[in-house]
């Protein structure tokens, strides 16, 4: 029920208002990486890295366990930042590059494995894996959503989901240095589930906090 007169008043009012704070991608990246690394360092101080890390690193699945989530995290962060601008266009296919590689790896293992597949995939630390990745993601994700409120995503749910995937994947890449289960069947399933979980939480947070 406003009239044009009050619009002029509003414009005058807005013109005198202080310039709002700027969204800074650097602060977002720095803050989130800082929190995630701090969490992982504390976690390793408590539970230790895997003892055979140096020798195990020679094996492809052990490398993939860190490199693929790391790659996914970088891609998802990059897309998050792109989608946080109103005129930004989001192309999602880069996300599927590491995902496809991971699935291919699991499929190859499935084709060549000789033991019972199900127990190999189930592993013995699945819950610890889910719980650790989830817990370690919580603070960085919360900070990221908080800082993104200054940005202007026109698809807030998508932006939130991408941020959640980025966080979960980044933490998983670090957690992999602790985890001793090296079967692609295990880590693709459980890391994948953990990342999907943080992605869903991110989507919900986006819906809840990133609309403007």
């Amino acid at each position: 029920m406003s009239d044009p007169q009050s619009t002029d008043d509003l414009i005058r009012h807005l013109a005198q208002a202080p310039v709002p704070a700027r969204f800074s991608p650097a602060v977002l990246l720095g803050g989130m990486v800082g929190l995630a690394v701090a969490g992982l360092v504390l976690y390793s101080a408590e539970f230790g890295l895997r003892s055979d890390l140096v020798t195990a690193w020679a094996h492809l699945p052990v490398q993939a366990k860190t490199v693929l989530p790391g790659l996914l995290s970088v891609i998802a962060v990059w897309l998050t930042l792109g989608s946080a601008r109103p005129e930004g266009r989001v192309v999602l296919w880069p996300v599927f590059v590491p995902v496809t590689l991971a699935i291919a790896m699991a499929a190859y293992r499935m084709a060549t494995a000789e033991g019972p597949l199900l127990s190999e995939a189930a592993g013995s630390t699945a819950l610890a894996c889910l719980g650790s990745i989830g817990m370690l993601s919580a603070l960085p994700l919360a900070l990221g959503v908080f800082l993104l409120r200054r940005a202007a995503p026109t698809r807030p749910v998508l932006t939130g989901a991408l941020l959640g995937v980025a966080t979960g994947a980044g933490v998983a890449a670090g957690y992999a240095l602790h985890c001793t289960e090296d079967s692609p069947l295990f880590f693709v399933s459980w890391y994948g589930l953990a990342i999907a979980l943080t992605g869903s939480i991110g989507a919900w947070l986006g819906h809840r906090f990133l609309r403007w």
């Binding site: 406003s2 969204f23 601008r85 200054r150 202007a152 403007w212």
Partner: peptide, 28 residues
């Protein structure tokens, strides 16, 4: 309609820092 206009103007104010000054204003 004027209410909606004011909402848009307010959003322009709140989000004005998301415009990058090396980019054209209109798409943004």
């Amino acid at each position: 309609h004027e209410d909606i206009l004011q909402e848009v103007l307010l959003a322009i104010h709140l989000k004005r820092k998301t415009w990058r000054r090396d980019a054209p204003v209109r798409p943004w």
